[in-house]
Every structure is written in C-alpha cells, then in structure tokens.
C-alpha cells in the first residue's frame, strides 16, 4: 500500500474552481520537490474520502496534468508523476535563490515594512518581469 504523499486542501470560498486548485497544488508540490517522478497521486477515492469533492473533478484535473505531460495514468494502478518540476533553484532550504529572497525579506523587515507592503512590492515586481499574458 502506497502512503499518500500529498493531501489536497480545497478552499470552497476562493472562487477558484476545484479542479484548478488540484492542478495548482500538484504543480506546487512538484516544484517544491514534494512530488517526484514515480510518485503516485492520491486516487480519486482517497481524495473524496478526505475532502468530499466530486471524484470526476479529481479525474479531470489528473487528465489535465496528463495533457501537460506531467503525469501518466496507469490502468488499475493510479496516476503517477512522470516529470520533475523542481530544480536546484527551488528545492531545499539552502537553494541560492531562496537564500537571496530570504536575505531581502530580512532587510524589508528591518526597514519596518508590514506584510501588505511586502506583498504589494512582490506582486508589482513580479508583474514587471512576468507580464500577465505570459503566465499560464
């Protein structure tokens, strides 16, 4: 029996549809190295037992991941991660980019920025570098 690697948290108030939330959470876990090639995604039944959402939605999200080439369904076994989204730059607490960002946060904190200021700055800078239409 494979143990569950991740558990989905469905936010019913977010306005983001359930299947998009599942896709986002799988990708997030892959980026952070929590899900690696060969890992099995929780079965629809496991997700349903944990969150009372529609299993068709889970399957639809998995099909979307398959279309993106990130996962593959194997008949009777489940859906498995086939690709790695994690990189040196994002995995682990000692990744260089993460450390640089951490240093930046320290300086922001010292200069008295509150969390809303930090978020606003981050979003503004992010949008300069990654214009909206390029993001998926």
């Amino acid at each position: 029996m494979l143990t569950d690697v991740i558990e989905f948290r469905i936010d019913r108030r977010s306005g983001v549809s359930t299947y998009v939330q599942i896709i986002q959470q799988v990708k997030q876990a892959m980026r952070l190295g929590l899900l690696n090639p060969g890992d099995r995604l929780p079965s629809a039944r496991e997700v349903v037992e944990a969150t009372a959402i529609n299993p068709n939605t889970v399957l639809k999200a998995y099909r979307e991941l398959e279309r993106d080439g990130l996962a593959q369904g194997r008949r009777g076994l489940g859906t498995f991660v086939t690709k790695s989204l994690s990189s040196e730059a994002t995995t682990g607490d000692d990744a260089p980019l993460r450390q640089e960002l951490s240093g930046w946060m320290d300086r922001a904190q010292q200069s008295g920025l509150v969390v809303e200021d930090v978020d606003a700055l981050y979003v503004a800078v992010r949008d300069e570098h990654y214009p909206a239409e390029e993001r998926s």
């Binding site: 469905i10 359930t18 079965s43 039944r45 349903v48 009372a52 959402i53 529609n54 299993p55 939605t57």
Partner: peptide
Amino acid sequence: LRIIMTEVADRGTTVVMSSHLLSDLHEVCD
C-alpha cells in the same frame, strides 16, 4: 456528501441531486 462522492468514485454512479440552494451543490457537481 462524502458517502455520495465515494459511491461515484467506487461505482461510477450517476447522481442527480436537487436543492433550492445552489451553494449546497456547486462544489460537488459537474
């Protein structure tokens, strides 16, 4: 809802649920 959804996951059952409150259903229906 969990029981009904497990039924769907296990047996592929088609479910028609009525409600006068959309909020009851829109999370679980497709």
